[in-house]
Design a protein around this nucleic acid. Structure first.
Lengths: 200, 200
DNA sequence: CATTTATGACTGACTGGTCAGTCATAATAC
DNA sequence: GTATTATGACTGACCAGTCAGTCATAAATG
C-alpha cells in the first residue's frame, strides 16, 4: 500500500463495486459489507470515502445525472435540424444505458428512493423535467422548421421521454427484452406513429 | 372482538392500509407495525391474515395483476376494429392507474423488488410480456385491416407499452406531472407520431 | 544503508438500535 | 367452556456505523 492513495480513484473503485452489487441484489438487500467485499477492502474503508450507505446510492445517482447533463448538452447545442437532434438524443440516451447496464439497473432503486421526501438527494423528478423541457424546446424548433405538426406540445415531449424510459423499464425488469432492438421502433413510433401512411 | 369476522373483508382492509402506507413511505421504509396502525389493529393481527411482510407486497402485486388481466381481457375480446381496441386499452390502463394512485405508487417498489430472482412472486416481467403479446396481436389485426403500416411489429408493441409505462413513471416520480393530461398525447404519438403530416 | 519515527490507509470486532415474527394472554361470542 | 379473534411485549437476528489498533511505507537521522 502506497502511503498516499489517489482518493478520487479509490472512491471511484468503491462506487463501481457498489453499483455492481446494487445491480445484482438491489439497494435494499445490499449490505455495506457486500460492497466492501466486492471492492476488495474492509468495511471500515468504505466509510473513509463515503459518509453512509445512502451516500453510495446518491453517488450512483450523480453518475447518472452527469451522463444526462452531457447528453442534454449535446442535443441542445448540436448542429442540424431540431428533429434530427431529437433523434440523436434518443439514440444516445438508449446507447448510454445499454452500455452500462449495471448503472442502469440502479435506476430501479433511484426511482423508488426518489419518492422519499426526506431524501432530496436523488431528484429524479428534476432530471426528467429537464429532459421534457429540452425536448419540448426541440419540438418547438422543429415546428418552426415545418418538421412536426402544429398541435404538438409539452404533453408530447413527456410521451417521448416516456417511450424511452418505458422501454428501459421493460428492459430492466425483463432480461428477455433487448434494449438495442427497441431503438429504431422508438424513433419510428415517435416520429411517424403506427397508423398506416399512404403517402410514404 | 366479534367471534366471527369476514376474513376476506378484513384481509382487504389490511391490504388497503398497507398500500396506503407503501405509497406514502415506500415498502423499504414501511414497518409491519405501521401497516397495523394504519389498519387500526395490532401488529399481531396482521399475521393472522398475511404470512409475512413480503406477502403484503405480493398481495398488492396481485391486485395489480388482477386489474391488468381484466383490462387485457376486455381489449382482447372487445368489439370494433383492432386499432380502436388498442386505443381503448391505453385509455383504460391509464384511467385505472389514475383512479388508484396509491396502488400505482406501489409499482415503484414492485419494479425494484421484481429484480430479486429469489422472489418469483412478483413477476412484473410476465405481466409486461402479456401486454406486449396482446398489443402485438392487435397490431397484426390492425395491419390486416389496413389500419397500420406494413412494417409494424413486436418492437412497436414494446414501444407502446413503454410510452404508457414511461408516462406513469414520470407521474409517479414527479407530483407536477398530471397523468390525465398525457392520455391524449400518448394516443396521438402512438398513432400518428410527431412528424408533420400534410395529408391531414 | 540501517534505524528510528511518523502517519495515512485500512481493518474488523463491537455497539446500539431496529424490527420481523412469535406467543402467552385476554377478550368475546356462542 | 370452548373456539375464535386479537393484542402487544418479547426475542433473536441483523446491520449501519464506529474506533482502537495494525500495517506498510515514507521521511528523517546518523
Amino acid at each position: 500500500m502506497p502511503r498516499r492513495v489517489d482518493r478520487e480513484a479509490r472512491r471511484e473503485e468503491i462506487l463501481t463495486a457498489a453499483v455492481r452489487v446494487f445491480a445484482a441484489k438491489g439497494f435494499a438487500a445490499t449490505r455495506v459489507e457486500d460492497v466492501a467485499r466486492a471492492a476488495g477492502i474492509g468495511k471500515g474503508a468504505v466509510y473513509l470515502y463515503f459518509d453512509s450507505r445512502d451516500a453510495l446510492l446518491e453517488a450512483a445517482f450523480e453518475a447518472f445525472a452527469a451522463d444526462s447533463a452531457r447528453l442534454l448538452g449535446q442535443a441542445r447545442d448540436g448542429e442540424g435540424r431540431a428533429l434530427d437532434r431529437l433523434v440523436g438524443l434518443l439514440r444516445s440516451v438508449l446507447a448510454t444505458l445499454a452500455e452500462r447496464p449495471e448503472l442502469a439497473r440502479v435506476l430501479l432503486d433511484l426511482w423508488a428512493a426518489g419518492r422519499d421526501t426526506a431524501r432530496p438527494a436523488f431528484d429524479m423528478a428534476a432530471l426528467y423535467r429537464e429532459y421534457r423541457a429540452l425536448i419540448a424546446d426541440l419540438l418547438r424548433q422543429a415546428q418552426a422548421q415545418g418538421d412536426v405538426g402544429p398541435n404538438v406540445g409539452d404533453g408530447h415531449a413527456a410521451v417521448v421521454v416516456g417511450a424511452v424510459e418505458g422501454c428501459v423499464l421493460q428492459w430492466l425488469v425483463d432480461p428477455e427484452v433487448a434494449l438495442e432492438e427497441l431503438v429504431e421502433p422508438v424513433i419510428e413510433v415517435c416520429l411517424d406513429g403506427l397508423r398506416s401512411q399512404e403517402g410514404r
